[in-house]
């Protein structure tokens, strides 16, 4: 056994106190106002592989995205929140069923402005936590890079994709590299499981992206020469709740980014989707896939869609950042169990 000695409860409290203050200082300094929205919700943003925890008659928030967007529709202006979130059956060194997201939205901003917020938050929390622990500051990434998903797929896998492949086209394009993506092949690769062409495309891309992250992206990000990376320009099938905009060579790309720090996925952001009909189709596609995968379809948040229609969401960009992971990285630890303020949670495998 090696590594630094465990943090005492007092040290953990000092680290969190410093991190929370730093987050608030950065985002308030940018003119955002702090909000609190309900933790128990009638419905959540529907994702293929994020399972909400039931809290009858609703669900615990998997993220505060929908209630915050409703506040934005209703005229809140730019806002942020430090929100407790719950995702069932996520347990590991980097996953807990209960965790905290810093979630924020900037009215009228480009995603690049939100990426700069991520950079500022990382730097501020690294400094604040090191100071609270009496440690020399761990170097926060200064040189951030930005790289497109498909460019990185080509570089790490040798396969050129344009991002609009449907399920059979994607399977054909990847046939030669399937063993590199892990055996057995990901479950929804058999995209016939999904009932509609859109759901099949979603299934195929989600399966491919998951396998590629594990087999290629994570090792690529683990290189210390890449301490801070914004992975940008997602294929439209992986847009989630982001706007899809015309990209190079006439191919539309999803304006979504993921920020990785020291090899760990930390934040996910969008130019936010504002079209209620497209938003409904995406929720329905995911529900079709969930049903095919034996997971339960989830309720669609009709009040959210109604607010998107009228008064409508102002043009905005936003992101969600895993605060527990950021505190872990800032404290130089390798597992969430090393830093969280849950008295019974000690131990890296908890």
């Amino acid at each position: 056994m090696s590594g630094p000695p465990p943090l005492s409860a007092a040290q953990r409290v000092a680290a969190w106190d410093a991190a929370l203050a730093a987050v608030r200082a950065v985002l308030r300094g940018e003119g955002l106002r702090e909000v609190v929205t309900p933790v128990r919700l009638p419905a959540v943003a529907i994702e293929p592989f994020i399972e909400p925890v039931a809290a009858p008659p609703g669900l615990l928030a998997t993220s505060p995205e929908l209630p915050m967007k409703r506040l934005m529709c209703q005229g809140s202006g730019s806002i942020f929140q430090i929100a407790p979130c719950f995702r069932a059956a996520e347990r590991g060194r980097l996953h807990r069923e209960e965790f905290h997201l810093v979630e924020w939205y900037r009215v009228g901003a480009e995603p690049a402005a939100v990426q700069r917020d991520v950079e500022r938050l990382v730097e501020a929390v690294f400094e604040a936590v090191a100071s609270a622990l009496g440690q020399p500051p761990r170097p926060a990434p200064r040189a951030w890079s930005r790289v497109g998903v498909l460019a990185l797929v080509e570089r790490t896998l040798g396969v050129a994709l344009h991002g609009h492949e449907d399920a059979p086209e994607l399977a054909a394009a990847l046939a030669g590299v399937a063993p590199a993506l892990g055996e057995p092949l990901p479950l929804p690769f058999d995209a016939r499981l999904a009932p509609t062409p859109r759901a099949r495309t979603l299934a195929a891309w989600t399966a491919f992206f998951s396998a590629w992250c594990d087999a290629r992206l994570d090792p690529w990000l683990a290189d210390p020469s890449r301490p801070g990376v914004h992975v940008v320009d997602f294929p439209p099938a992986l847009a989630a709740l982001s706007e899809v905009a015309p990209g190079p060579e006439g191919h539309a790309v999803a304006d979504r980014f993921e920020s990785h720090v020291l090899g760990r996925e930390l934040a996910n952001g969008y130019r936010e989707l504002r079209d209620p009909e497209e938003q409904r189709r995406r929720f329905e596609d995911v529900n079709a896939l969930r049903a095919a995968l034996d997971g339960a379809a989830l309720p669609i948040d009709e009040a959210f869609l109604a607010d998107l229609r009228d008064p409508g969401l102002p043009p905005c960009a936003g992101a969600a950042l895993g605060l527990d992971r950021l505190v872990m990285l800032a404290a130089g630890r390798g597992a969430l169990g090393d830093v969280i303020l849950e008295p019974s949670a000690a131990g890296p495998d908890a």
């Binding site: 293929p48 989600t206 998951s210 594990d214 992986l238 996910n268």
Partner: peptide, 13 residues
Amino acid sequence: EFQFVKPGKGQGL
């Protein structure tokens, strides 16, 4: 031995 990994919006391994 047991390890859970998961890209944020991807499939857990």
